[in-house]
Every structure is written in structure tokens, then in C-alpha cells.
């Protein structure tokens, strides 16, 4: 027989939460929701396998398809290319945030979340945290494979890890943006389609694969100043060396700025429709 010890009385229920409690529950609930996605993923080994294959294929294809052809780069093109591939891969990996969020909105369990005393924002923050966790693995995988096909760090381990961190921070900022797209279109297929016109120009009209200097002037203006290029430049500086400070600072500013803008928008959008 159960005891009634779990039951919350009215006075306790109505007691206002302190700011601290609110923050604590936001973290705890975010953790629970992130766990929810990761636990579901573990149950689908085939989906893990396929999501691992994509970044690996990208590394291999870009390394061997473009690796020999593109000139005009100082030093090793593989070393030049790899940070670009990393950034491109986490960018495309963020599609899952859009699709997953839209999918989640159609699930019955969302209805129950709305009737639970959980922090509402956690449905979105948990989503982006689980995507971040996934990205940690895909970046590790890509790096390992990168090393196998000739990528070498020209700086030091510390700088390389900082580049790694920058990459993850950028992926996290994209997760928020793409989660917002998922929340806006509310349909998984549409969400997936909606991310492509953003991803293609930003990843290809960038410094990810070729030096921007080879592009027509009007395109250079865009390619030089858009966030994907900035992150790639930052990662390159940290992994391949060269003038570090400005590139890294700009890249950091972009990532943090995107999080600062997109996270509240996504959370607000979710609480609006929920």
C-alpha cells in the first residue's frame, strides 16, 4: 500500500518559488528532458549508426573529392579544410533540432507536460542540451577520422580543445535557432525543408572550403562577414595557427550573441503555443 507522503497540500502548492528554486528546477527539468531524448536515442541503435555515418562521410568526401583540387591555400589543404568540415557538419547536424522540436509538438506527451509543474522552458532547453550532447560525440568522431586522413593540429592541444569548444558553442547556438524554426512551422517535414535554404548559402558561401578571395566581390562581402565564416576562421586560428585573438573573439561574440537572441525567442515561442 502506498503512503500519502507524496501528496502536495494546497499551502505547499501555492507557496511562491524563490528565484533560486526556479533556476534549480529549470536545470533539473532540462536535464530530465535531455535524458528523455538521449534515452530514446539509445533505444534506436540504427539511428545512432546513421547519424554517425553522415559526419564521417562528409569528412571523407570533402577530404578526397576537394582535397587535391583546390589550390591557393598556404600549407596543407587538409588542415585548411578540416575546421570547415567540422563547422559545416555541426551546422547540418542542427537540422535535428528543428525536426525534433516540430515532431515533439505533435506528440501526445507534450499535452501532459503542460499539466505538470515542470519548468516550461525545459522542453526547449532539454532539446538543445540533448543535441549538444550528440554533437560532442559527432565532433569527437569527426576529429578522430580527420586525424586518420591526414589532419594535423598545427598549434597545441590547448588551442585545439578551445577550437573544439567554440565549435560546440556554435552548434548550440544553431540548435536554438533551428528549434525556433521547428516551433514556428510545427511540422517535421516542413521544418527540415525550411532549414536547407539557410544552411546551403551560409555553409557554402563561406570560408569553410575555399578562401573567400576566390569569390566575386559582391559575394565576398557576405562571405567574409557571416557567422559560419567567422566560426570557421576562429576554429582555423585555434587549430592551424595564425593571428588568433580577433578571429576567436569575433567567433565567440557571434555564438554567444546568437544564443542570447535565439534562446529567449525559442523559449517564448514554445510557452506561447503551449
Amino acid at each position: 500500500m502506498t503512503t500519502t507522503s507524496l501528496r502536495v497540500d494546497v499551502a505547499t502548492a501555492m507557496a511562491p518559488m524563490t528565484r533560486r528554486e526556479r533556476v534549480r528546477w529549470l536545470f533539473a527539468d532540462t536535464f530530465t528532458i535531455a535524458w528523455r531524448f538521449l534515452a530514446a536515442m539509445v533505444r534506436m541503435p540504427d539511428s545512432i549508426a546513421f547519424s554517425a555515418i553522415q559526419p564521417m562521410l562528409l569528412v571523407l568526401l570533402f577530404r578526397y573529392v576537394f582535397g587535391g583540387a583546390i589550390a591557393g591555400v598556404h600549407g596543407s589543404y587538409v588542415n585548411y579544410l578540416m575546421p570547415g568540415i567540422f563547422v559545416q557538419t555541426v551546422a547540418f547536424g542542427a537540422i535535428i533540432s528543428a525536426v525534433g522540436m516540430a515532431e515533439d509538438l505533435q506528440k501526445g506527451v507534450i499535452e501532459r507536460f503542460r499539466a505538470l509543474p515542470m519548468a516550461r522552458a525545459a522542453v526547449v532547453t532539454g532539446r538543445t542540451m540533448s543535441d549538444l550532447t550528440r554533437n560532442v560525440f559527432s565532433v569527437i568522431l569527426m576529429t578522430a577520422l580527420g586525424f586518420a586522413v591526414g589532419f594535423r593540429v598545427e598549434t597545441n592541444a590547448f588551442a585545439f580543445l578551445a577550437g573544439f569548444g567554440l565549435l560546440l558553442l556554435f552548434s548550440w547556438s544553431l540548435s536554438w535557432g533551428f528549434a525556433l524554426i521547428g516551433l514556428l512551422v510545427r511540422n517535421p517535414e516542413t521544418a527540415q525543408l525550411a532549414t536547407i535554404p539557410i544552411l546551403l548559402p551560409f555553409t557554402f558561401a563561406s570560408s569553410a572550403f575555399v578562401p573567400v578571395g576566390t569569390m566575386p566581390g559582391w559575394l565576398q562581402a557576405f562571405a567574409n562577414n557571416q557567422p559560419v565564416s567567422q566560426i570557421v576562421n576562429g576554429c582555423r586560428a585555434l587549430m592551424n595557427g595564425g593571428p588568433t585573438e580577433t578571429h576567436v573573439l569575433i567567433a565567440l561574440a557571434w555564438s554567444l550573441g546568437l544564443v542570447a537572441v535565439l534562446a529567449p525567442l525559442a523559449v517564448r515561442r514554445y510557452t506561447r503555443i503551449a
Binding site: V8, V10, A40, K107, G108, I110, R112, A115
Partner: peptide, 21 residues
Amino acid sequence: AAVRRIIGLAGQNAAVDENLS
């Protein structure tokens, strides 16, 4: 928020996560 702490809901459509046990 207080109401959510004292209620339980079983809606018309099962509100469960299909992918979890």
C-alpha cells in the same frame, strides 16, 4: 503553476512518449 502541483491528468489521447519504456 500551483494547480499543476495538485492535479493529475489522463487526457483523451494517451500522453506518453512512444520511444521510452
